[in-house]
Amino acid sequence: MQDDRRHIASAFDRDLEAIQALIMKMGGLVEASITEAAKALATRDEELAEEVRLNDKAIDELEERVNEEAARVIALRAPTAVDLRVILSVMKMSSALERIGDLSKNMAKRTGVLVQMPQINGSTTALKRMAREVEAMLKDALDAYIQRDAELAQDVIDRDGDVDQMYNALFREFLTFMMEDPRNITACMHLHFIAKNIERMGDHVTAIAEQVIFLRSGEVPGDRVKHDLITPDAGPEGSGGD
């Protein structure tokens, strides 16, 4: 999985593989969470939204386990060089995945509120498309990790710009709706927070892709330029996370 050259102590290989398998499992749950949350929003499915919220617990538990395993490997095997980078990267990735899970859960919570209100035309389709793009990026980032494919990882990082553009477009759209009819404000605020959540997910996916490049080169790629309109320089953790 990580390096063609095996460790002399095969248990070390097994430890590293086990911890990366946990990350992949976590990644699978987070991908599903994004899909379901977007679907629940688009189909105004309260039950599915509730399920997404409940499933987040499993993601949190996996994050705990990854951190425990990583601590164990550090204590028992004193990893160096590429092994050390594997451990550092899984810790960063698990925390990024956990954050994405939280954002997805928050999206499901807002869906629960939105279904009680009249629908805003067309808006959820665009949100679903945006969520689908982020999910595809996540899938590619995880594939890039498994394959140690720095090129694919760079591609994911580049695509985050598209997500930022989608967010900007939605932001303007929601603004227009709100100005047209103040009765739309509550629903549009929720929709806007959802869009912001998805945009933040893209940032966390980018952080995962950066870990692939770090693994390969030992260097974390330089600062990215943010393309969205309202994130100030230091970028707060979205407005809707919990």
Partner: peptide
């Protein structure tokens, strides 16, 4: 040397790999 060795022989040795 212990985080980013240049030579693959160094890396194999310090990480306990064959090769």
């Amino acid at each position: 040397i212990f985080t980013k060795p240049e030579d693959s022989r160094t890396e194999s040795y310090i990480t306990g790999r064959i090769g």
